[in-house]
């Protein structure tokens, strides 16, 4: 859907926060291209979650722009952004625990026509058979990893161009986290743009194309994921590691 040259998501000089006059982001710029996985890292309080919520429409923006496929969506209400191509998986409360798995997916397709939504749900059941076999169970009984899969599936119902994932591997076992990253890579293989916020910076960057480091609500460093992984300064300042320790030795 995106023009060949344009970015799927382009955030420019964003000033945003939960309360007016008390911004948490002081001019952040980020872009994500089609089929690209981009990770945002940074210390606590850097504004990572705020950025992703601003793109999802849950945080009020006072300055700057958020362009989706070249169209500024700053004034579009959150529920319409879902229709226009943004899928968002929040960090906590990412599924409706009191609804069944099937009903969770119906929620994801709330903005689609009934027939279209039903077709999409069947398609997603094909991709994630674990959901189909447990469709009548309440989402509250799922494990953390299964909830993430359900949450991603719910966000995919509208076939978004962009998926936002807030700390997707928090609380997951290494195995479940690895499975989730595999799923995310599949998505990008299908052309979806993926924007991830992660505490687990190493694992996320290893699975990403590019990364941004935020601090105190501003851009600090950005670049290719493997460059960031090798950067000593990042390990030291932003992730509290011993001086001169890169996140990871650059893989040859």
């Amino acid at each position: 859907m995106a023009s060949a040259a344009g970015h799927i998501l382009q955030v420019k000089d964003l000033v945003a926060g939960y309360i007016r006059d008390l911004p948490i982001l002081h001019g952040v710029s980020v872009y994500v291209d089609r089929g690209e996985i981009v990770t945002i890292i940074g210390p606590n309080g850097a504004g990572k979650s705020t950025l992703i919520k601003a793109v999802a429409g849950l945080v009020s923006v006072s300055q700057g722009s958020i362009e989706l496929n070249g169209k500024n969506i700053v004034n579009v209400p959150a529920y319409q952004r879902a229709t226009q191509g943004v899928g968002y998986v929040p960090q906590t409360g990412n599924v409706f625990t009191t609804l069944s798995i099937h009903e969770n997916l119906i929620m994801g397709g709330a903005s689609l026509h009934r027939g279209k939504a039903e077709r999409r749900i069947e398609e997603l059941y094909e991709i994630y058979p674990v959901l189909k076999s447990r469709r009548r169970e309440k989402a509250g009984v799922l494990s953390g990893g299964q909830r993430q899969i359900l949450a991603v599936a719910r966000a995919l119902l509208t076939q978004p161009d962009l998926i936002l994932l807030d700390e997707p591997t928090a609380g997951l076992s290494p195995k479940a986290a690895a499975e989730l990253f595999a799923l995310i890579r599949d998505l990008s293989g299908d052309g979806v743009a993926v924007l991830i916020v992660e505490q687990n910076a190493k694992a996320a960057l290893r699975n990403s194309d590019r990364g941004y480091v935020l601090a105190e609500g501003e851009n600090r460093i950005d670049g290719a994921a493997h460059t960031l992984l090798a950067d000593k300064e990042i390990g030291e300042i932003f992730l509290g590691m011993r001086r001169d320790t890169p996140l990871e030795k650059e893989e040859a």
């Binding site: 429409g57 879902a82 929620m107």
Partner: peptide, 16 residues
């Protein structure tokens, strides 16, 4: 029922 549990999740799911 979804809105009752979480209005914000319902919103980002595309529910008005």
């Amino acid at each position: 029922r979804g809105v009752a549990e979480s209005p914000s999740l319902a919103q980002v799911s595309g529910v008005n």
